[in-house]
Simulated scan of single mutants.
Amino acid sequence: MKRSLILCSLCILLLPAFSWAVNLPTLSFGVEEANTPAEVSTALQVLLVLTILTVAPAILLMTTAFTRIVIVLGFVRQAMGTQNTPPNQVILGLALFLTFFVMAPTLNTMNKQALQPYLEEQISQQQALTEAVDIMRGFMFSQVKESELQLFIDITKEEQPENKDDISSSILIPAFMLSELKRAFQMGFMIYVPFLVIDMLVASVLMSMGMMMLPPIVISLPFKLLLFVLVDGWQLVVGSLMKSFG
């Protein structure tokens, strides 16, 4: 006990010496006046990059296949009545990987036509950004319907566009989101139907047996899980999702 107290005392006494012997780096932030326009431009570019990183999850939701996939997977879990199984982490992880799978051709095209030429200094930063946005717009145009586009064109009271290039991204993105929500709910309805039939059959059988106090979900859940496993439900759901983007 005495030895441990002596060692602790020595360590406390030697801490100032170690702090003098080792030079620890410091990091400081500050706001200074800009002397040249280039410094102002660099600061604005850094601020823009930080802003884009902040809204990156929203961009992922608005411009990719993530919305449709995660909603359909959520409908599958609710239709089976398994509460939090699979958990949210599994649903979101599967949705992200399926999103990367669907977006792989678009991302590869963006890499070849925008990122790599920019890294090789063949095109400017503005040209690379414009090319990447055009490729992403092409994916969204392949999934959006004309009715959703016309809705937002009528709301903004803009002139009728002659081609796709005349449609601004401020119209295309919400129209794409609306189209994705519509298709996701249509697929969710088709998923709910067979499970709803099982619930109705179980409820009618329980009522005919006079067991009205027993919740039908307790009896129907094993049958719904059995049906989902027998028909290989996850493969059917994922396959239907992938084909819906074709």
Rank of each mutant, 00 (worst) to 15 (best):
L7A: 13
A34F: 05
Q116A: 15
E33G: 00
I69H: 07
S124E: 05
D154P: 02
D166R: 01
M190E: 11
R137Q: 10
M80Q: 11
Q150P: 01
K112W: 08
D165L: 11
G138L: 10
P86A: 02
T99A: 07
P86S: 04
A43K: 11
K157Y: 14
I167E: 03
M1T: 12
A104Q: 13
F141E: 01
T63V: 11
K145Q: 15
R3T: 15
F185T: 08
M177E: 10
L119F: 12
N84L: 08
R137T: 04
N84K: 00
I198P: 03
L53A: 12
L107S: 10
V76D: 04
I52T: 11
V55F: 13
S169Y: 11
N163P: 00
T63L: 06
I12D: 07
M190W: 11
F100G: 09
F152T: 09
P86R: 02
R3A: 14
S240N: 14
T106F: 05
S142A: 12
I191N: 08
G81T: 04
S124T: 15
Q235K: 12
V205P: 01
P215G: 04
L107K: 03
F228A: 02
S142T: 07
L226A: 04
I198K: 02
E158K: 13
I123T: 08
T130D: 15
P215C: 00
L5M: 13
E162A: 10
E32C: 01
Q89N: 14
L53Q: 11
L221Q: 01
K2Q: 09
A128K: 05
I69Y: 05
Q143L: 01
G210M: 08
Q143V: 10
T67N: 11
L50P: 02
S9N: 10
A114M: 01
K157D: 15
Q160E: 15
K182P: 09
P194Y: 07
P86N: 00
A95F: 03
L92I: 15
F29W: 12
L60Q: 11
I59L: 15
I135Q: 05
A184N: 02
N23M: 07
Q186L: 12
L225V: 02
L241N: 07
M110F: 00
V31L: 14
Y118V: 08
L15K: 08
V46E: 14
V102E: 02
D134W: 02
K182R: 15
R77N: 06
L15H: 08
D166S: 10
Q186E: 12
L230K: 04
G30D: 03
F195K: 01
F66I: 04
P25K: 04
V55W: 06
S142I: 05
I123R: 02
N23G: 04
K157L: 13
G138R: 07
L225I: 00
M190P: 03
L227D: 00
V197L: 09
L61C: 00
Q45H: 12
A17Y: 14
A58D: 12
F176P: 05
L94R: 01
F75G: 06
K145M: 09
L151A: 10
L115S: 09
S142W: 03
P37M: 01
G74L: 10
L115H: 06
P25M: 06
T64Q: 02
L178T: 14
V76I: 08
P161Y: 03
I219Q: 02
P25Q: 02
E33C: 00
V70S: 10
P194T: 06
L48K: 13
F245E: 01
Q122D: 15
I123M: 08
M207I: 11
L5C: 09
N111H: 11
R183L: 14
V49C: 04
V76W: 03
